[in-house]
Measured scan of single mutants.
Amino acid sequence: RPFRVCDHKRTIRKGLTAATRQELLAKALETLLLNGVLTLVLEEDGTAVDSEDFFQLLEDDTCLMVLQSGQSWS
């Protein structure tokens, strides 16, 4: 499924495809050149996407933000 993913400053944006939350996090880690533990949130309001069940309910092309440890949505 297609998703739009950005870093916490919204300066890097990438289109990625993934079937699972874990797959998307792995691709974001590599594509956005990030490291460490990542958190996935909705870009629009910062809602945490912390379960596979919730991830599977997201629509195609949902905009997501990837946060590294110590970063927060704004």
Rank of each mutant, 00 (worst) to 15 (best):
C63N: 14
D60S: 14
T62F: 03
M65L: 01
L40P: 07
L24G: 02
Q68T: 08
T11S: 15
V5H: 00
L40A: 10
D53L: 07
N35I: 09
A28N: 00
G36I: 01
E44R: 07
T47I: 06
V41H: 05
K27A: 09
T11Q: 08
K9R: 09
S51R: 11
D61I: 00
R10W: 02
A28H: 00
D53G: 07
L34H: 02
T39V: 07
E43A: 03
R1C: 04
L58Q: 05
L64M: 09
I12F: 12
R10T: 01
A26L: 13
F54E: 14
L16A: 07
S69G: 12
V49H: 00
L57P: 06
D45N: 12
D53C: 07
D45V: 03
F3V: 03
E43M: 03
E30Y: 05
Q22L: 07
Q22C: 10
D53T: 09
S51T: 09
T31A: 13
L24T: 00
G70N: 12
C6G: 02
E52K: 00
T31D: 11
D61C: 05
F54R: 12
E44C: 10
G70F: 05
R1S: 13
R13C: 12
D50Q: 12
T20W: 05
L40V: 12
T62K: 05
D45H: 04
A26N: 12
V66W: 01
L58M: 08
F3N: 01
G15K: 10
C6S: 06
W73Q: 05
D50G: 08
S51H: 08
F54G: 13
S74N: 12
T20L: 02
T39A: 09
F55L: 06
A48R: 10
H8T: 06
D60M: 08
L42V: 12
H8N: 10
F3K: 05
Q56C: 11
G46T: 06
S72R: 11
K14T: 13
E44L: 07
L33G: 15
L42A: 03
D7M: 01
E23H: 04
R21L: 11
V49M: 04
R13L: 13
T31I: 15
L38Y: 08
V41M: 06
S69D: 10
V66R: 02
Q71Y: 04
L38M: 10
L25W: 04
E52R: 01
G36M: 01
F55D: 00
L16C: 09
Q22F: 10
L38A: 11
K27T: 09
W73E: 02
V66M: 03
F54T: 13
D53Q: 12
A28Q: 02
K27R: 11
L64K: 00
D61A: 08
T20F: 04
V37I: 09
A18P: 00
T62Q: 07
C6W: 04
T17R: 08
E43P: 02
A26Q: 15
E30P: 14
C6Q: 03
K14Q: 09
D50L: 06
L25C: 10
G15I: 15
S72K: 13
R10Q: 02
L58S: 04
L32G: 15
V66L: 08
E23I: 05
M65T: 01
D61P: 02
Q68E: 15
T62Y: 00
E44K: 11
G70C: 05
E30I: 06
L57H: 09
N35C: 08
A18G: 05
L16H: 00
L58N: 05
G46R: 00
A26K: 10
K9S: 12
C63I: 07
A48L: 12
D50W: 04
A26W: 13
L16S: 03
S69F: 06
E43K: 00
G70D: 15
D61K: 09
H8K: 05
Q71E: 14
G46M: 00
E59I: 09
P2L: 15
L67E: 00
V66T: 03
T47C: 07
V66Q: 00
T20S: 13
S51A: 07
L58P: 02
Q56N: 15
D60K: 12
L25T: 08
L64R: 00
D53F: 04
D60V: 09
D7S: 04
L25Q: 11
A19H: 11
A28V: 10
R10H: 04
T20R: 04
S72Q: 11
K9G: 08
L33R: 11
T31G: 14
L25Y: 09
V37P: 10
D61T: 04
K9Q: 09
V66D: 00
L32P: 07
A26R: 08
L42H: 08
E44I: 08
D50N: 08
A26H: 12
F54I: 12
T31H: 12
G46C: 01
R13A: 14
G36P: 09
E23F: 02
H8S: 14
C63V: 13
R13H: 13
A48Y: 10
E43F: 00
G70Q: 07
T47E: 08
C6I: 08
Q56M: 10
V37D: 13
A28C: 10
K27P: 02
E30L: 05
N35R: 12
G36T: 07
T47P: 02
L34G: 10
L64I: 05
V66I: 09
L29T: 13
L67V: 03
V41G: 12
L24N: 00
L42E: 04
V37N: 15
L34F: 09
D53H: 14
G15M: 13
V66P: 00
T39C: 08
Q71C: 05
D61W: 05
D45R: 00
D53W: 06
I12Q: 08
C63H: 12
V5K: 01
Q56F: 04
D60Y: 08
N35L: 05
V5T: 04
S51N: 08
V5A: 14
E43W: 00
L57W: 07
T31M: 15
L57F: 10
Q22V: 10
R10I: 03
W73M: 00
T11P: 00
D50S: 09
V49F: 00
T17C: 08
R4N: 15
T31S: 14
A26P: 03
L16F: 09
L40T: 07
R10V: 02
A18E: 02
Q71F: 03
S72Y: 10
R4S: 07
D7A: 02
E44V: 08
L16Q: 02
R10G: 07
S51V: 04
F3I: 06
A26Y: 13
L40S: 03
Q68A: 10
L38K: 04
Q56E: 13
A28R: 01
L25P: 00
G15N: 10
T39Q: 14
T47G: 07
F54Y: 13
L24E: 01
L64W: 03
L42W: 01
L33M: 15
R13Y: 15
E43D: 12
S72A: 03
T39H: 11
V37S: 11
V66F: 03
F55R: 05
L42K: 14
E59A: 11
R10P: 02
S74F: 06
T31F: 11
V49A: 02
Q68L: 06
S72L: 09
D53V: 06
Q22P: 06
T17S: 12
V41N: 01
D60L: 06
L40D: 00
C6V: 13
A19S: 14
F55S: 02
T62I: 07
L64E: 03
L32F: 14
L67Q: 03
R4L: 07
L58C: 04
Q56V: 07
L25E: 06
V37Y: 10
S69C: 14
D50E: 12
L57G: 14
G70Y: 03
Q71I: 05
L42C: 10
L33A: 14
L67A: 01
R13G: 09
E59T: 13
Q22G: 15
W73G: 02
T17I: 08
E52F: 01
A48D: 06
N35K: 12
Q71G: 02
E59N: 09
F54N: 08
S74Q: 13
L38V: 11
L40Q: 03
L40M: 13
R21S: 06
V49D: 15
T11M: 15
G36D: 15
L58Y: 01
S51L: 01
D50M: 08
E59P: 14
G36C: 02
E30M: 12
T39M: 11
Q68N: 07
L38F: 05
L67T: 02
A28T: 10
R21A: 06
L29Q: 15
D50I: 04
A19Y: 12
A28L: 05
W73C: 05
A19F: 10
E44P: 07
T39E: 13
E52C: 04
L58K: 02
T31Q: 15
Q56I: 07
L38H: 14
R4I: 15
S74H: 10
C63M: 13
Q56S: 13
T39W: 06
L40G: 04
T39Y: 08
Q68F: 04
S72C: 14
F55P: 06
L34C: 14
V66H: 07
E43R: 01
T20G: 05
L67M: 05
V5N: 01
M65V: 11
G46K: 02
S51K: 08
C6T: 13
T20K: 01
V37M: 15
